[in-house]
Amino acid sequence: MRAAVLREYGEPLKIEEREPPTPEPHGAVVAVEACGICRSDWHAWMGHGEWADDQVPRGQVLGHEPAGEVVAVGEQVTALTVGDRIAVPFNLGDGTCHYCRNGYGNVCVNDRALGFQPEAPGAFAEQVHLPWAEYNAMRLPEGVSARDVAAIGCRFMTAFHGLAHRAALGPGDWLAVHGCGGVGLSAVHVGKALGARVVAVDVNESALGRASDLGATEVVNATECEVPATIQALTDGGAHVSMDALGIAETCRNSIRSLRRRGEHVQVGLSTDAERGEVSVPTDYMARHELSFHGSRGMPPTRYDELFGLMQAGAVTPGKLVSREVALSDVSDRLDAMTRYEVEGVEVVTDFAN
């Protein structure tokens, strides 16, 4: 099978021929129909994460936002059959640890991170292996395309989990979203679906235009104002929930200072080598105003049904985020475009033969 392999950080991925995976007794093999290209792939491609002992090794097949069709199952798997169409989460839980048993499989103590660890080769490939398949596989509802589910991938489900499960965003609340890339635009769309009023912040007018199309009530160009003060004024005292969807020091601190008293900050964006995993935050300000700081990673597999239900009801349409469909051989170019912040929305690999 063809697969895109990380050989050198920051250099084009190598399209290589590899042996197709065979399922572990608890696993399944999926023929990939679509896989999103995410900024987390860019972090891996750039070699970020060494400061947290989280650097993706050379030789890794990247790609962590797949959907496709089951083509083989392990001997212990009875709840899945060949031909089932499924979504594959990137945060793979074993289904047995304390966290998995209590609904938090996204932070499983034995987890495998799809596309980021040698034990979990990724989905920039014609086929991908899914471990602990009965716990992790999420069947696609009727009428939901693999392309749209790839748009859910890491970014949409992470935004949904962060706003609906980690924070307590409710109807009528103000939500501020800092950074309107894939996860930020997902957060705008999810926030609108949950009944919130959304302020979208970016430095790119085209990205802000997309945010408006997805339901943002207000848009703020960060190059033209002092962001926290502007949001405080627009929301009559600050956002109830604010998300840093980019991960640089400026957006993290702006997000915190955009909150009203007892507001909730959600950290989704990962840092670059400028921050090396650490950002100083205004702790006195947070204590004085009783602000909450939530980390958020992916989404428990057991809660996919909530998101699929919103899709079937038409409350969210992740396909609207897809800006481009590309071939496997295009992935390196699209990762390079992320370096220059030239990617808008969600780009998805749908052609694995070229």
Rank of each mutant, 00 (worst) to 15 (best):
D305C: 01
A337G: 05
W132L: 10
V71P: 08
G277K: 12
L194Y: 12
A31H: 11
K14P: 00
L194E: 12
D202I: 03
A287E: 03
G215D: 03
N91P: 00
R276I: 00
V203K: 12
V70F: 13
L62I: 09
H161M: 01
L291G: 11
G153P: 02
E344F: 07
V326L: 12
T251G: 07
T158C: 03
I231F: 05
V279Q: 01
M1T: 06
V348T: 10
L310S: 10
R262M: 07
A44E: 09
A3T: 10
C38K: 10
G247F: 01
Y104G: 00
M338T: 12
G95Y: 05
T230P: 05
T302V: 07
S212V: 02
A3R: 15
V61G: 10
D305Q: 15
L259Y: 05
R257C: 07
E275F: 09
A168K: 12
L310G: 13
G319R: 15
L246C: 08
M286D: 11
G27L: 09
V227M: 08
E250Y: 01
T217W: 06
M243K: 00
I231S: 09
R288I: 00
F160G: 04
E134D: 09
T283C: 08
H48T: 02
V241R: 01
A123D: 06
G47W: 03
V279E: 01
L62E: 08
R303Y: 06
E226T: 11
D244E: 10
N354P: 01
A233D: 05
W42N: 14
A229W: 02
I37V: 14
R147C: 03
E306Y: 09
R101F: 00
S186P: 08
R155E: 04
V88K: 07
F160N: 05
F156G: 01
V199L: 09
A245T: 10
P66C: 15
G195V: 01
T217H: 12
V203Y: 08
R7I: 08
V322G: 00
T217Q: 09
T251F: 02
G277Q: 05
H64Y: 02
G319M: 10
A229D: 14
R288A: 15
D284K: 14
A120F: 09
G122N: 15
E69W: 04
E11H: 14
D244Q: 11
G263N: 14
G83Y: 06
V190P: 09
H26Q: 13
A187N: 05
V56T: 15
I256R: 13
P12T: 13
E11P: 00
A196G: 13
V88A: 06
Y99T: 03
E275I: 06
V77P: 13
V177N: 06
V109W: 02
A167N: 04
